[in-house]
Deep mutational scan, measured.
Amino acid sequence: TTYYDVLGVKPNATQEELKKAYRKLALKYHPDKNPNEGEKFKQISQAYEVLSDAKKRELYDKGGE
């Protein structure tokens, strides 16, 4: 599973699309609303952290993490 899959976006997604997808999923899986989905929330946050940063995203796209 790639970070793009976690957020449900395509690899060519814009920053705005990433932000929108992250917010939607973060609300859905937030531990306050969904106590059993803490791990999913962490995955979503990690994916967004990497993909929202241009340098980290470039490194990730080249095969790094």
Rank of each mutant, 00 (worst) to 15 (best):
Y60K: 03
L25Q: 05
Y60H: 04
K33E: 10
K20N: 14
E58M: 08
Y48D: 01
E49H: 09
T14Q: 03
I44N: 01
F41K: 02
D32A: 11
K62I: 08
R23V: 15
K20A: 15
E17L: 05
E58T: 06
K40W: 11
K56C: 12
Y22H: 04
D5H: 07
Y48V: 02
H30V: 05
Y3E: 01
N12M: 06
V50E: 05
G63F: 15
D32R: 09
L27M: 13
Y29I: 05
E65G: 13
E65V: 13
E37K: 08
K24D: 15
A47E: 01
A13K: 00
A26M: 15
Y4N: 01
E37R: 05
E39V: 08
Q15S: 11
D5W: 05
Q46E: 15
Y3W: 09
I44F: 03
K56N: 08
S52T: 06
V6L: 13
V9F: 00
D61L: 03
P11A: 11
Q46N: 10
P35H: 08
Y3D: 01
R23H: 15
N36L: 13
A47D: 00
E39A: 10
F41W: 15
K42A: 13
F41E: 02
Y4Q: 00
K56G: 06
V6A: 06
Q43C: 11
A26K: 10
D32C: 14
L59D: 13
L27E: 15
A21I: 04
Y3P: 05
L59G: 06
A54V: 13
P11H: 11
E37G: 14
Y4T: 01
R57E: 02
K19I: 12
L25N: 02
D32W: 06
V50C: 09
V9G: 00
S52W: 04
K28R: 09
Y48M: 05
Y60A: 03
K28E: 12
S45Q: 15
A21K: 04
D53L: 03
K10C: 14
N36R: 09
K20Y: 09
Y60I: 04
T2F: 09
Y29G: 01
A13G: 02
F41Q: 02
K19Q: 12
K62T: 09
E49F: 10
A26P: 00
Y29H: 06
A13Y: 04
K28D: 09
H30R: 09
K10A: 13
E39I: 08
Y4K: 00
R23A: 15
A47C: 02
Y22G: 01
E17I: 05
K20L: 14
P11V: 09
Y4S: 01
A47W: 01
G64R: 14
L25G: 02
N34E: 07
Q15F: 14
L51A: 01
V9W: 00
